[in-house]
């Protein structure tokens, strides 16, 4: 499929999703759906760096929280519409992604991952000590019941915004995959020295990946304060984000755009159901068990399982 038809189909799927959610007519569907969509964006963003270039980022929560706290700052100074907040959150996290890349990309393998974890701790510490955004107490965001423009229910509006963002993220990932850039990323993932010897500017491409990946995580986080209405460091930097952003692509399959989407929908939905039926404390346990099972049984994710021994990542 070419890029344009792909985009049209994605928009149709998104429209159908929104239509179906509206038909159910229960606001819980939008509440839960928002989380699943947010994970589609996070998993896709993580996969641009982790799946395509092979650099495992443990710091997803920091990038998401930077987007979320950018919105808190703006809310407290001069409130702006959510789409604008998303652009700003994306810029902030993208720039931090670029900086992190400069500082850490010389580190290979697990050392890079540990550095991302350290970054996460540093950012969290800074936020905890920043009174303006509520410090460790957190910040309250009073959101209107409806939007100004179409008098739309606010949670439905947030759902719609996240739906559009996930289409953009998935479309971007898919474009990368089929492009010269995608081949360059794959070469880096497979063998960096051989990639350099073939003319691939590995540092530049890796910086592009950390920037883009960070930016999408920040965008996913920007509407978060309006969704939760109370944001504190403990929830903004929740371990669940980092774990899910890794688990979802691995479960779906890291080699293509579809993997993170499948992983996010399955795992995200499962966690939402588990939260209602059992308890939210169980969520991470469920993710952990499924992840371990997949690493053993299906190292190339569900897509790898379906495609059999066709092309895919060697892990």
């Amino acid at each position: 499929m070419r890029a344009l038809p792909f985009l049209l189909v994605s928009i149709l799927v998104a429209a159908a999703t929104f239509g179906a959610a509206t038909l159910v007519g229960n606001s819980y569907v939008f509440f839960a759906g928002y989380v699943v969509l947010q994970y589609i964006v996070l998993a896709t963003a993580w996969n641009i760096l982790g799946g395509y270039t092979g650099y495992v980022n443990f710091g997803t929560a920091a990038f998401l929280a930077l987007g979320a706290y950018s919105s808190v700052v703006i809310h407290k100074t001069m409130p702006m519409p959510i789409p604008v907040l998303i652009v700003i959150g994306g810029l902030v996290s993208g720039i931090v992604g670029l900086g992190m890349g400069y500082l850490t990309l010389r580190l290979r393998g697990s050392f890079f991952s540990i550095a991302t974890l350290a970054l996460s701790v540093v950012v969290q510490t800074l936020i905890i000590n920043w009174d303006f955004v509520g410090g460790s107490r957190g910040a309250y965001i009073v959101r209107p019941r409806t939007t100004e423009y179409f008098a739309m229910n606010y949670i439905e509006y947030l759902f719609l915004v996240m739906l559009v963002l996930s289409v953009i993220a998935v479309f971007t990932a898919r474009c990368i995959e089929r492009s010269r850039l995608g081949y360059g990323f794959a070469a880096i993932r497979d063998d960096e020295a051989a990639a350099e010897a073939s003319g691939v500017p590995t540092l530049k491409l890796k910086l592009l990946a950390t920037t883009l990946s960070g930016a999408f995580m920040g965008m996913a986080g920007a509407p978060l304060p309006y969704y939760v209405t109370y944001l504190d460091p403990a929830s903004g930097f929740s371990l669940a984000y980092a774990v899910n952003a890794i688990a979802m692509p691995l479960i779906g399959g890291t080699a293509s755009w579809l993997g993170p989407v499948i992983g996010a929908v399955l795992l995200g939905t499962l966690q939402q159901v588990a939260t209602v039926t059992i308890s939210s404390a169980l969520n991470l346990l469920i993710v952990g068990v499924i992840l371990v099972a997949f690493v053993i049984i299906a190292p190339n994710g569900l897509i790898g399982l379906v495609r059999g021994k066709g092309r895919g990542m060697k892990r």
Binding site: Y183, A186, A187, D190, A197, A255, R311, K314
Partner: peptide
């Protein structure tokens, strides 16, 4: 390279 270093996922 003396020891071949192919791009294994391609």
């Amino acid at each position: 390279f003396q020891l071949p270093r192919p791009f294994n996922s391609l």
